[in-house]
Simulated scan of single mutants.
Amino acid sequence: MAAPRAANERGFARAWAAVERFAFAPASAAPLAALRIGLASVLLIQAGMVAPALLDLHGRSGILQAPLADALGRPGFVWLGWLMDRLAPLGVGEAPILVAVGASYVLALVALLVGWHARMAAAGAWFSHLMLMMTADSTNYGVDRFANIFLFYLMWMPAGAALSLDRWLGRAPVGPTSAARLALRVVQIHLCIVYLMSGLGKALGEPWWNGDSIWRTLNMPEYRQYDFTWLAYYPWLAMAAGWMVLLIECGYPVMIWPRRTRRLWVAATVALHVGIAAFMGLGVFGAIMAVLTIAAFAVRADPPGPVLSEADALRSSAAAGAP
């Protein structure tokens, strides 16, 4: 009885050690900093593009009039219409509220970009982005939801521990940490699930196998950037493009982890989103998705030399300082 029990205990110990190395081995915060800087940069560009239409998109007398905006709004969320209704008795008009929320959003993104009080900046950017997103819910698409999700993640991640004012001012932890590793794994696993579900969803339908989806996407009026009607004469090209999309997305959670295939899959994924930006006009979406994959899998997280746990590092430091 003792021998099997000991073998089971050793097996459990090895399994737990593998989990600990995967999820908690100290890692550099550089990938999280890349996520912070990349996401904030793209969202600032988007904010500059949207700013001239701020009142039209979010005002109660804009493209969607107040009754229609209220009907399409999501109950239970704090959105700008709710805020305007409560400040109206105080004589505050909708324009100052929209400008204040928009300015708060931009300032929070700038603070996030430079890493000044990074977690508070992420919280401010997330909340103001959520208000703007819920107010113009009918204009949202995937990029807005991805941006809001990863702004939320940045509230809890040590993304200000590298390439930031927080680091320069001594407010962020120095060196690799277990928190950085865990945060990075959350981002990586989230992306793997997203791409796998997207790829499987496409694979269940025939249009992505026969090229119909590629043809329709490139020639739909709302997405059409160039004349691709010539694809009708070369249907195998559209079919091959559809197969390539399926391969990249379904293969993402398998091929992105091994070192031998990681660079290839990062490059293929970035190329996919560059294509989406160039041929569908979805530049912000393409840029954000490329930033996510590059930050999660292309930026080095492992510190040079052997990886030590934080407890081992503390013991080593204590031993080095002992007489």
Score class of each variant (00 low, 15 high):
residue 63 I to Y: 03
residue 77 F to R: 15
residue 32 L to M: 06
residue 72 L to A: 02
residue 195 Y to A: 06
residue 176 P to T: 03
residue 119 R to P: 04
residue 300 R to S: 13
residue 185 R to H: 14
residue 108 A to L: 05
residue 194 V to Q: 11
residue 5 R to I: 11
residue 126 W to L: 06
residue 312 D to W: 00
residue 300 R to Q: 09
residue 218 L to G: 08
residue 282 L to C: 10
residue 172 A to M: 01
residue 62 G to E: 09
residue 119 R to Q: 13
residue 290 A to P: 02
residue 135 T to Y: 01
residue 251 G to F: 15
residue 250 C to M: 15
residue 179 A to V: 07
residue 269 T to E: 05
residue 223 Y to D: 00
residue 36 R to V: 00
residue 275 G to N: 11
residue 120 M to V: 15
residue 218 L to R: 00
residue 217 T to P: 04
residue 21 R to C: 06
residue 259 R to P: 13
residue 83 L to Q: 07
residue 56 D to E: 03
residue 316 S to K: 14
residue 72 L to Q: 01
residue 260 R to F: 07
residue 224 R to E: 05
residue 320 A to S: 12
residue 311 A to E: 11
residue 3 A to D: 12
residue 213 S to W: 08
residue 100 A to L: 04
residue 137 D to K: 07
residue 146 F to Q: 02
residue 77 F to G: 11
residue 11 G to F: 02
residue 292 L to H: 06
residue 199 G to N: 10
residue 311 A to W: 12
residue 150 F to I: 14
residue 89 P to S: 10
residue 34 A to Y: 01
residue 135 T to L: 00
residue 247 L to S: 10
residue 240 A to P: 02
residue 220 M to K: 07
residue 43 L to D: 08
residue 116 W to Q: 00
residue 106 V to Y: 04
residue 249 E to Q: 11
residue 43 L to P: 02
residue 292 L to D: 12
residue 247 L to V: 13
